[in-house]
């Protein structure tokens, strides 16, 4: 009998204690972040959408090899000795055209493994994370800046040059190749990097103001 009344008393008492707790929480400010209206500040070095500064890319394919899910596709095209593709911002001479540089961001797992190998630091993570699309294909970001006409011209030129070289080789006895243009000292930045955007064909690509690559849209 004693335990019976004790149980009832404890039941009532613990209910009241619980009610006091929920009552106090009723007036505790909510912890909800109303996302589209309010955004949390991202941590430094947060990994979100990739951005490639094509002016600096030398087409070395390091990033594509590092990628564990193979979502970077790079095609390169040799240039002929008479064209000067310019220098990257760290002073590396560019020798290859990059007619295709696609990142399938839908496959990307944001591991960031493609960033450190890049010798010119031109592929990097930005803090943009809102890029949902209605079409999956729109998530293939095309960063290459060459137009089809330019690609064709470069290809024809390369073919002509190679043919010429082959004829020369057949005609003349082998001799040392023409010396490569002297390397510019590391650190000497070219004055004006030509302005270029990642070409969006057909998909809209991330639009980062190219004048200021640090600006993460």
């Amino acid at each position: 009998m004693g335990t019976y009344f004790k149980n009832i008393w404890e039941g009532i008492w613990t209910v009241l204690v619980g009610m006091k707790i929920t009552w106090s929480h009723l007036f505790t400010p909510a912890v909800t972040i109303q996302y589209p209206d309010v955004k949390l500040k991202l941590p430094e070095r947060a990994r979100n959408r990739l951005y490639v500064n094509m002016d600096d890319c030398i087409g070395c394919d390091q990033c594509a090899m590092a990628c564990p899910v193979d979502c970077i596709t790079i095609e390169t095209l040799k240039s002929t000795p008479d064209v000067d593709l310019g220098l990257t911002s760290v002073g590396t001479k560019k020798r290859l055209y990059v007619p295709r540089f696609d990142i399938d961001i839908a496959k990307c797992c944001y591991c960031g493994l493609c960033v450190p190998p890049c010798p010119t630091e031109c592929i990097k993570m930005t803090d943009v994370y809102e890029f949902s699309e209605y079409e999956r294909n729109n998530l293939i970001y095309r960063y290459a800046t060459m137009t089809p006409a330019e690609i064709d011209a470069a290809k024809t030129k390369l073919a002509a040059y190679e043919k010429e070289q082959a004829e020369k080789k057949a005609a003349a006895p082998p001799k040392p190749a023409a010396p490569a243009p002297a390397r510019v000292p590391v650190g000497a930045k070219p004055a004006g990097v030509p302005a270029a955007k990642p070409v969006s064909s057909p998909a809209p690509a991330p639009v980062d103001p190219p004048e200021n690559p640090e600006n993460k849209s």
């Binding site: 929480h25 009723l26 007036f27 505790t28 400010p29 909510a30 912890v31 109303q34």
Partner: peptide, 13 residues
């Protein structure tokens, strides 16, 4: 609303 605020949420907003 009450359930949300008792759980420190906001509920429909």
């Amino acid at each position: 609303k009450i359930s949300a605020h008792m759980q420190d949420r906001l509920g429909p907003m």
